[in-house]
Amino acid sequence: MEYISIFFQYVGQYLKTRLTYRADMIVEIFSDLLFQAVNLVFILVVFGHTNLLAGWSKDEMIFIYGFFLVPFSIFASFFNIWDFTDRYIVKGEMDRILTRPVHSLFQIVLERMELESLFGVVTGLVVMFYAGDKLGLEISWYDPFIFILLVIGGALVYAGIFIALATIGFWSDSRTDIMPMMYNIGNYGRYPVDIYNKVIKYVLTWILPFAFVGVYPSSYFLEREEWYTYAFLTPVVGIVFFLIAVTLWNVGVTKYRGAGN
C-alpha cells in the first residue's frame, strides 16, 4: 500500500515538472504518433499487393497492431530501462538507489517513467475500434475485463524480458547492442506468428515470448479459436517471465560492484 502512495507522489511530481516544459511533452507525443503512423502505413503497403497473409486479412493485422500498442505503451511508460547499465551501473547511480528503503527496481521505474507514452494507449484503442468495426466484431460485457487482463499480461512479458536483459549489467558493464536488437525483435510479435518459420515461431512463443504481446491475445478478440489457448496463457506467461526477471534482478543486486568513483 505504501508503494502505491509513493507511486502517486512520484506521478504528481512528474506531472508538475512536465507541465513546466509543456512544449517538450507535445513534441514527444507528436513524435510517438508519427512513429505509430509509419508502422500503420507499413502494414497498408504490405497489403497493397495481397489481401491475405497466411490467412490473416489487412484489417486483422491492423487490429493486432492496435492491440499491441496498448501493452507496449504501458511498458514504454514505466520500464525505461534500456540504458540501465550506462546510467545506473557505470555512473554508479545505483549507490543512491540502494541507500533508500524501497525496492530498487521499483525506484528505477518511478525515476524513469515517461507518462507521455501512455498516449499510445489511446492510439491503440482508436486503431482497434476502427479495425474492429470494419471486421464487424462484437463486444460483450466481459470483454473489457479480459482486455485489461491480456494487456497486463502483455506488458509484463515486455517488462520481464527487458528487466532480465538489464540485469546483465550487474555482471558485466561492457557495452552491448542487445537492447536495440531486442526492441527490433519485439516488433515481430505484432505480426501473426504463422507467417514465420517454425524456429522463429517457437522463439517468439517460449523464449522471447513477444507473440504474447500482440498476436496471441488479439486472436481472442478476432475470434480465432485455434489460438485461444495461447490467448489465455498470456497473463500466465507475463507473470512467470516477470517473476523470473525480478528474481534475476534481486540476485544481480548482490553482485553490484559500484563504480570505483
Binding site: 507522489q9 512520484y10 568513483n261
Partner: peptide, 23 residues
C-alpha cells in the same frame, strides 16, 4: 562525490519525495 538529490527538481520537492519514501 555524488549527489543524492534529484537533479531537475527543486530541493523542497526532493525533500518531499524523500519524506514519502522514508514514510
Amino acid at each position: 562525490q555524488r549527489s543524492q538529490l534529484w537533479w531537475d527538481i527543486a530541493v523542497q520537492e526532493s525533500f518531499r519525495l524523500l519524506k514519502k519514501i522514508y514514510n
